[in-house]
Amino acid sequence: MTTNKTTAKTTAKNNAKGDKAMTTKKTEKKVEKSNSEKFSELANIRVPKALRVIKSISSLANDDRYDYTDEQSDAILNALKSAVDEVTQCFENGGQKDEEVFRI
């Protein structure tokens, strides 16, 4: 009985490997996307993600749940404004800026 189970497992593994190999070959035949298509695809993923994160930051303003100083809230707002300014500058110049790390 052990031999049958082992054989069945080996056969299943080999079949799975064969399926993966076939999938890889199919993937290789994909048509390359244009830079415009790549841009749109990534923008449609990244911008909504960034907006969700920014909205989650706004929940920190709930003073019933959190205690914070004016300096802390100003630091958050300044960091966000600075990040938006950098993105604006990148689009205007077609370049990238160094990433800054925010800490309170």
Rank of each mutant, 00 (worst) to 15 (best):
K29E: 05
E92I: 05
V87F: 03
R46T: 06
R65Q: 13
D85C: 11
Y68C: 08
E71R: 01
K38A: 10
T23A: 08
V31D: 14
N14C: 07
K9Q: 08
E100T: 11
T69N: 07
K81G: 10
L42A: 09
K29W: 11
E71Y: 07
V87D: 04
Y66R: 07
E100M: 01
D98Q: 00
N93K: 01
S36V: 10
N14W: 07
T69E: 12
I76S: 05
R52F: 07
S36T: 13
E71C: 05
S36M: 05
T24I: 11
S58K: 09
L80N: 01
D64K: 00
L80K: 04
L77K: 13
T88C: 13
D70Q: 08
D98V: 00
V47F: 09
L51Q: 03
F39R: 06
E41W: 11
L80Y: 06
D63R: 06
A75C: 09
D85F: 11
K33F: 14
T27W: 07
N4V: 12
Q72V: 03
G18M: 09
E86R: 00
T88F: 01
Q72H: 12
Q89L: 14
Q89S: 15
D63Y: 01
D19L: 12
A8S: 03
M22K: 12
D19E: 14
T23L: 12
K26T: 13
C90N: 05
N93M: 12
A75K: 02
V53Q: 04
A21I: 07
K29C: 11
I57P: 03
K13A: 06
V31E: 15
S82N: 15
Y66M: 04
V53Y: 02
R65P: 03
K33Q: 14
A43E: 05
D63N: 10
K33E: 14
A8T: 08
S58M: 13
K20V: 02
C90A: 08
A16E: 11
L42H: 03
Y66W: 05
S40A: 10
N93Y: 07
D64P: 01
V84F: 10
K5S: 00
A8Y: 01
I76Y: 02
D74L: 15
K17F: 05
T7E: 07
K20D: 09
D85S: 14
R52D: 08
C90M: 09
V84R: 06
M1S: 15
A21D: 01
K20T: 08
K38S: 08
A50H: 01
N14R: 13
V87M: 05
N15K: 05
